[in-house]
Amino acid sequence: MTTCLECDAPLTFPPDLIDGEIIPCADCGAELEVLSLSPLQVGLAPAVQEDWGE
């Protein structure tokens, strides 16, 4: 089972998954990039660091 690299949550993939697709993690919102389909491998997609500016 492939889990999120940030928080280890199990990842759910749509049936028509394609290479390079970005999958969000339901638990922590991290964006995972599909690096290869078989074997299924994901990597952390570069996320733009957003600042509240508070």
């Binding site: 928080c7 638990d27 922590c28 919102g29 991290a30 996320a47 733009v48 660091q49 957003e50 509240w52």
Partner: peptide
């Protein structure tokens, strides 16, 4: 609910 995210107003 566990709310621990990297981005967003409600992280």
């Amino acid at each position: 609910r566990i709310v621990h995210e990297k981005r967003g107003m409600y992280r």
